[in-house]
Simulated scan of single mutants.
Amino acid sequence: MQIYNMHDAKTNLSRLIEETVSGGEPFVIAKAGKPLVKVVRIDVEAEKPPRRIGFMKGQIKIPADFDTMGADEISEMFEGKAK
Rank of each mutant, 00 (worst) to 15 (best):
residue 22 S to N: 14
residue 82 A to C: 03
residue 80 G to N: 04
residue 31 K to R: 14
residue 63 P to G: 11
residue 39 V to G: 03
residue 26 P to L: 03
residue 23 G to Y: 01
residue 24 G to W: 00
residue 62 I to S: 03
residue 3 I to S: 12
residue 48 K to I: 03
residue 1 M to L: 09
residue 74 I to Q: 09
residue 75 S to E: 11
residue 76 E to V: 00
residue 17 I to F: 10
residue 42 I to C: 02
residue 35 P to F: 04
residue 47 E to Y: 05
residue 46 A to R: 15
residue 11 T to I: 11
residue 51 R to M: 09
residue 61 K to I: 12
residue 44 V to W: 04
residue 61 K to F: 06
residue 68 T to E: 10
residue 27 F to S: 01
residue 13 L to Q: 06
residue 55 F to P: 00
residue 54 G to I: 05
residue 78 F to M: 11
residue 6 M to T: 12
residue 50 P to A: 11
residue 34 K to P: 00
residue 39 V to T: 02
residue 12 N to R: 10
residue 80 G to E: 09
residue 29 I to C: 03
residue 11 T to M: 12
residue 79 E to W: 07
residue 53 I to P: 00
residue 16 L to N: 07
residue 40 V to L: 08
residue 82 A to D: 08
residue 65 D to V: 04
residue 49 P to Q: 11
residue 47 E to F: 06
residue 25 E to M: 13
residue 60 I to R: 13
residue 73 E to G: 13
residue 16 L to I: 03
residue 76 E to C: 02
residue 38 K to Q: 12
residue 15 R to Y: 04
residue 28 V to L: 07
residue 19 E to I: 01
residue 83 K to Q: 05
residue 36 L to I: 10
residue 37 V to R: 01
residue 20 T to L: 02
residue 17 I to V: 15
residue 41 R to F: 00
residue 75 S to L: 06
residue 83 K to Y: 05
residue 26 P to Y: 08
